[in-house]
Design a protein around this nucleic acid. Structure first.
Lengths: 177, 177
DNA sequence: AGCAATTGTTGTCGTCAACAACAATCTTTG
DNA sequence: CAAAGATTGTTGTTGACGACAACAATTGCT
């Protein structure tokens, strides 16, 4: 009863009531019979920032993974190494807090990076509970390469939404970093 | 848990090499010994749209879940019901494609929504492989309520980043919907 | 000294994306 | 028309991820 705009006579079935292959779009019948593709209306979703952000985030994530596939580094791993590289000696707790990830999860991330000889945990002298995190020599070298590839990924983003829009986006969301 | 920056006794964190906060940022020694909280530099991350978007997405997700907690509806469930409500009779494949979710995952989502009597799968007459998806009467009623709460969530977003910025965001990311 | 808090660790639960495999059911084509 | 190919819904697996809970070792606080 509230379908709104389209015709809701017998319900526009979308795709299951008609002979599937009347596939030409808009044939006089006006109402959409979305079946194969993208004529499906999103209704209220178009006004939700969360939906757009989620789709965008998925796209970005996939492009990042693809662009850095050769070095087998994912966004989270990249963020961890970047922060450690910029703040040597940080504790796991500090890294976790700064990046907003569970410390429990960071444990596994570091296990992996340490196995790959990119990061090392050094027992702290002043606080025997914590570890001082550092990049290995190879880790620093690798990170340079990672940053180059990440910059390439960032260019993909620019191509996708436009240089100016990317800038605005960063500006709008600066408070969340 | 906030902090101020005057005493280092509370010192939560710590870093691992120095007695907590010897100084603030300063450049003399180059690297800071961030420990407590947010003086940890993000380095290259600040220039990555993906990082900001991820953090924002997490915030949005949490606010949505919290705002719709009373009706126990999550973003994906909301998107599925909204699309079905706007396009009655759609097949599972069509919904999955439109929302960019795996059809395998949609199966479970619909199982749940169907158990809650919000959605129903009707066997199609014209294609016995597919199901025509519809909202139940209760589903339509509930969706109205969900949309009200989702609108409230959207207002939270406005309060967080500003009305104009939200508009701008939707505009920039319109291509991903 | 004694108790509360922190740090790293391990483990569980539920969500989510990406695949793979399958049966039933179209669609295409030889 | 019949065989081959493609789709649809399902089930199951893998691995990343966020949220929690519990624990031992170690600090900090009183």
């Amino acid at each position: 009863m509230r379908d709104a705009g389209e015709k809701n006579v017998t319900a526009s079935a979308g795709r299951n009531e008609l002979p599937a292959r009347a596939r030409r779009k808009r044939a006089g019948n006006g109402a959409a019979r979305p079946d194969d593709a993208d004529e499906v209306g999103l209704d209220a979703l178009v006004g939700h920032a969360g939906y757009a952000v989620r789709r965008f985030q998925i796209w970005i994530f996939q492009d990042f993974v693809r662009t850095l596939a050769a070095v087998d580094i994912r966004p989270t791993q990249y963020s961890v190494m970047t922060v450690i590289g910029a703040n040597p000696g940080l504790s796991q707790m500090a890294v976790a807090k700064r990046l907003g990830i569970e410390r429990a999860r960071l444990v596994h991330l570091l296990d992996s990076l340490e196995r790959r000889k990119l990061v090392k945990r050094i027992k702290s002298k002043t606080d025997r509970r914590s570890h001082a995190l550092h990049l290995t020599a190879q880790g620093e070298l690798s990170l340079t390469k990672f940053k180059q590839l990440a910059a390439e990924h960032e260019r993909h983003v620019e191509e996708k939404i436009g240089k100016a829009n990317r800038e605005r986006l960063l500006q709008i969301l600066a408070g969340f970093t």
